[in-house]
């Protein structure tokens, strides 16, 4: 146990840097994913068939293939055409991946808003775009927050897969340490603790945010 604590303490500075990397990749990829998800969800509910087909293709491919394949494909495939650092290849892959799931969340929440809301807005002379922005989306986004929190947690943990394209984040750092010291169990436990701490922090922030939304109304 003391040796485990020693391992934990001695690697603390390195893991803090790695955790920062994990947070950066997660934060940037999820921010991009929100934008991607919203745009695709609006395409799907636009009622235009061609946009619906694009949506189905995107979500179908992303949900139908493993994330690790998507990361590898983007990293080795796209870098043949454009020079992309491992950081950006990984972040973009994660964004495209989470974007599909977030699009599904937004689509579901938009479609769950009662049809009467759009009818009421239109009957007041609002155009569909204005009605979407002022009436439908605020209600849909509020409903999207709990499943979105869930998706963000998944996104945070999924970021561990960029270890395989050579980014030093929590998981790759623990792999390296495990390989060098042969203390596999210890270092994967340490990795788990860091993820657990980050998820716990995020869950806490999310619940405070949800409470504030509830009392704001």
């Amino acid at each position: 146990m003391t040796s485990f604590l020693n391992d934990l303490i001695s690697t603390f500075p390195a893991f803090t840097r790695a955790a920062w990397m994990t947070l950066q990749i997660t934060g940037i990829s999820l921010a991009l994913a929100l934008v991607i998800g919203l745009i695709f969800a609006l395409m799907k509910v636009s009622g235009l068939r061609s946009l619906g087909i694009i949506y189905n293709g995107y979500v179908g491919i992303i949900r139908g293939t493993p994330l690790i394949v998507q990361i590898m494909w983007l990293y080795f495939g796209i870098t043949q055409i454009v020079v992309l650092s491992a950081f950006w290849a990984g972040t973009i892959a994660l964004a495209i991946h989470s974007g599909a799931y977030i699009a599904e969340i937004f689509r579901g929440c938009i479609q769950s808003v009662d049809r009467g809301q759009m009818e009421a807005a239109e009957s007041l002379g609002m155009k569909r775009g204005l009605a979407m922005r002022r009436i439908i989306l605020p209600q849909a986004i509020k409903r999207a927050i709990p499943p979105m929190g869930n998706q963000f947690i998944i996104g945070l943990k999924d970021s561990s897969l960029v270890a395989f394209i050579g980014i030093t984040e929590i998981f790759s750092l623990s792999m390296d340490n495990a390989a060098v010291t042969f203390k596999q169990l210890e270092f994967y436990t340490i990795a788990g603790l860091y993820y657990l701490a980050m998820v716990a922090l995020f869950t806490y922030l999310l619940s405070r945010f949800e409470n504030r939304l509830d009392t704001a109304k």
Partner: peptide, 28 residues
Amino acid sequence: NKVRENVGMVFQHFNLFPHMTVLENVIE
């Protein structure tokens, strides 16, 4: 939308905007 600006409609199920106050509903 131009036609509808001149035609008010009241629905069976009200369809008020739940995320807005009563006054905000009216001035929207």
